[in-house]
Design a protein around this nucleic acid. Structure first.
Lengths: 236, 236
DNA sequence: CGATTAATCGTCAGTTTGACGAATAGTTGA
DNA sequence: TCAACTATTCGTCAAACTGACGATTAATCG
């Protein structure tokens, strides 16, 4: 294939979770040049006999210990290949978006001793190496949009959760506050979004809440819309 | 970077347009093995100093003569890299989706003497080389979804067009028929979707229609929804 | 010129929305 | 113990939006 083979292919991960009611992203501290000591998104090379999705799943498992069956969501985000984005050589990276329920601190002892969860707003202000700020931004846009018309918000929740838990997911990801009464009405009316477990929360202030599990639906009809979000988005 | 560099990176294009009220996709007939003589999506290698978007734009220009300023839309679709998808060597391809107004037959004389527009439904039934059927399918899904909540339908139209022209875009892409009265109401009420030119069509049967041009909006609020499309999409 | 065609305007009932009041069922603190 | 507090859940209401479809308008066709 001639002179075209000198491009390295990697996968990078934008992994979101919610801790203490704020959206967090998984980061690693680079141990080598370039950008040594700087924060970056986790990622690595695609192995010669490995599918792209496989590579992303492997990297995710290495960094977090999460794998199939942990109710996490993994989808391809976009691919970035501007010449010079890695100063060493031409690197094309396929970015993936992962959503996970809150879990303990990243598995030390593995490849990812330097990995840590950081609040997205703290990272967004230009803190990442390479073009990872842009990738994080695109991942955030994608996650925000997907909450509107898919049931993916439940992947941020534990196996059983309350409507308030689910609402806090939307509030954390969108950075807005939502009327609990209208949100409750829409969620329980949305067929297949959540299923009753019959149980209710034991502790906590206020009236005990019903516990739900994720329902079988993947798409939301009608969607849960951000108030003035995309609206009035004019531009030329 | 060791043993990781032996992956070739290409771009492939899903180019849609509308001819005779049906959605068409740009195809090429392969002149070399593998899949010699078979239909495929146009595409080619990413050059060493070339950005991915650039490569896609270049390939599009080579095949169609279309370039910036022709009011066409070009966006990254997804990346495909399953080992074995190209029997010769490991190839990762970044697919792009392009939408264009109807134009003449593909520019013969260039690289693309074998390029032709074919109705999507004729191609969908497993006619393409490599994994291009899958790519076409993903492109079709993306195009259908984007018509709902963006103003991209106008990129299928000439500089000035009627509401009926726009409706035929939706009907061709979605493969449904739409009530002309409700569609008209929504389109003219949607701020920034279309702008009046003050002119009207001269020829044709029936009452002459007002001519519009594309407005400044990029997002649609509220969206133009497919009837029962995504609705009831349960599964798990 | 009447039939036909297509564009545009209207009507109407049913649904969904955002705003917000009210009842419920717990915990907290004096 | 009980009033204050908090959070969940249920209701109400007017405004907006939707799909179905009738009616009018303005052209071409036979």
């Amino acid at each position: 294939m001639g002179p075209f083979s000198s491009i390295a292919v990697t996968v990078d991960l934008v992994v979101f979770t919610i801790r203490t009611e704020r959206l967090h992203v998984l980061t690693v501290t680079r141990g080598v040049e370039p950008f040594e000591g700087r924060l970056a998104l986790p990622g690595g090379f695609v192995l010669p006999e490995e599918d792209l999705d496989q590579a992303a799943g492997r990297e995710l498992a290495e960094e977090t210990g999460l794998g199939r069956g942990d109710g996490l969501h993994l989808e391809q985000l976009a691919t970035y290949g501007t010449p010079g984005r890695d100063p060493r050589q031409r690197v094309v990276t396929v970015a993936y978006l992962a959503l996970a329920a809150a879990l303990g601190d990243p598995t030390a002892g593995t490849d990812a001793a330097e990995a840590q969860w950081l609040p997205v707003e703290d990272v967004l202000v230009g803190g990442l190496a390479f073009d990872h700020d842009r990738i994080l931004d695109d991942g955030l846009d994608r996650a925000r949009a997907k909450l509107e018309y898919t049931t993916l918000a439940t992947t941020f929740c534990p196996p059983t959760f309350t409507v308030a838990d689910l609402r806090q997911v939307y509030e954390a990801v969108w950075g807005v506050s939502i009327d609990p009464r209208n949100f409750h009405r829409k969620v329980v009316a949305s067929e297949g979004f959540v299923e009753e477990t019959g149980e209710r929360t034991a502790e906590g202030r206020g009236r005990p809440a019903m516990l739900f599990r994720a329902g079988p639906a993947t798409a939301l009809h009608p969607p849960i819309v951000r108030q003035g979000s995309v609206a009035r988005e004019l531009g030329g």
